[in-house]
Write a protein that binds this DNA or RNA. Structure first.
Ligand SMILES: [Zn+2]
Ligand SMILES: [Zn+2]
Ligand SMILES: [Zn+2]
Ligand SMILES: [Zn+2]
Lengths: 151, 151
DNA sequence: TGAGTCATTGAGAAAAATTATCATAAAGGC
DNA sequence: GCCTTTATGATAATTTTTCTCAATGACTCA
């Protein structure tokens, strides 16, 4: 996927955003759009404090940042990933079943759509008696720009 | 695996603990053993603040709890899992390649050893140019005691 | 076993992150 | 443009995490 594709996609998704908020009787404020834009322009995701600092420029208070990120997560526009040091980063994601491949050096993220764990899930359910509802899967490594690990 | 198995295992692992710390020139203090015992007795894992509160009883300072949990993670004795609300919980784990199946209702965890993502990892490497170094995989659902989701 | 050395600890302070409160601003419906 | 109601931002409060440093105690070596 090229940068242009991403750009177009993010613009389109502001409309999705409006519809998603409307559906819940929530309003689409300029702050919500601005927060969304910040995240959708990032290829590494941001932590909450990072987002707060970045959004000071637009005079958006931190309470709002926390609230909007929460909403965007619940609506499926943002996803949670693990940064190199285990911190939570929030990444603008496409809806549906998606995982991520994260560079441990620079933090760049690629989406992974190629996952079939349904067989394993059924096996686990049979073995353990759990009702398996889903999974969280992340791959990590080093991206082409960063090259192979120096160690 | 039965509770007895777990019990025996945890006792044995205090020796592992001693050896692991020794190997790095670190000392095995009573605090380190106590922290380890707390975690190895838990089937749901604990957050850091939870562990701090529980260990006040033993007069272990919070700075120590943070430090010891960090060390145990680096040594592979504790693993990071996601609680129901996304919070980080630390779980006593067996060494090696292990994942977890977590109950979203009560937090009980079962280990999952049955994972083969190496084929997918190779495919991803070929497709993206990443040097894929590993993955983080969690399953979630509801355990037999909690029954199927009410929704 | 008994110093001596040096990593480790805990109290406390400090910094950082998160949540709560509430008067004001503004979005959406009319 | 009004009105109703949600959303916002300043501020305070709370919680979580990190830092500092004197005192403690684990391990080594004689
Ligand atoms: Zn990279
Ligand atoms: Zn999947
Ligand atoms: Zn359960
Ligand atoms: Zn695996």
């Amino acid at each position: 996927m090229t940068q242009d594709d991403d750009k177009r996609l993010n613009d389109l998704r502001v409309d999705d955003l409006r519809r998603a908020f409307r559906r819940l009787g929530l309003r689409l404020t300029s702050q919500r759009v601005t927060v969304w834009r910040l995240f959708s322009d990032s290829t590494t995701g941001l932590t909450l404090p990072e987002a707060c600092r970045a959004l000071q420029e637009y005079a958006i208070g931190q309470a709002t940042v926390y609230r909007v990120v929460n909403s965007l997560c619940e609506l499926g526009f943002l996803l949670n990933i693990h940064g190199t040091n285990g911190e939570h980063r929030y990444l603008a994601g496409h809806p549906g079943h998606v995982h991520h491949l994260i560079c441990r050096s620079c933090g760049h993220v690629r989406e992974v759509t190629d996952c079939d764990l349904s067989t394993l899930e059924k096996l686990l359910a049979a073995q353990t008696g759990f009702a398996v509802e889903g999974h969280y899967l992340e791959f990590y490594g080093r991206c082409p720009r960063c090259g192979p690990s120096p160690g």
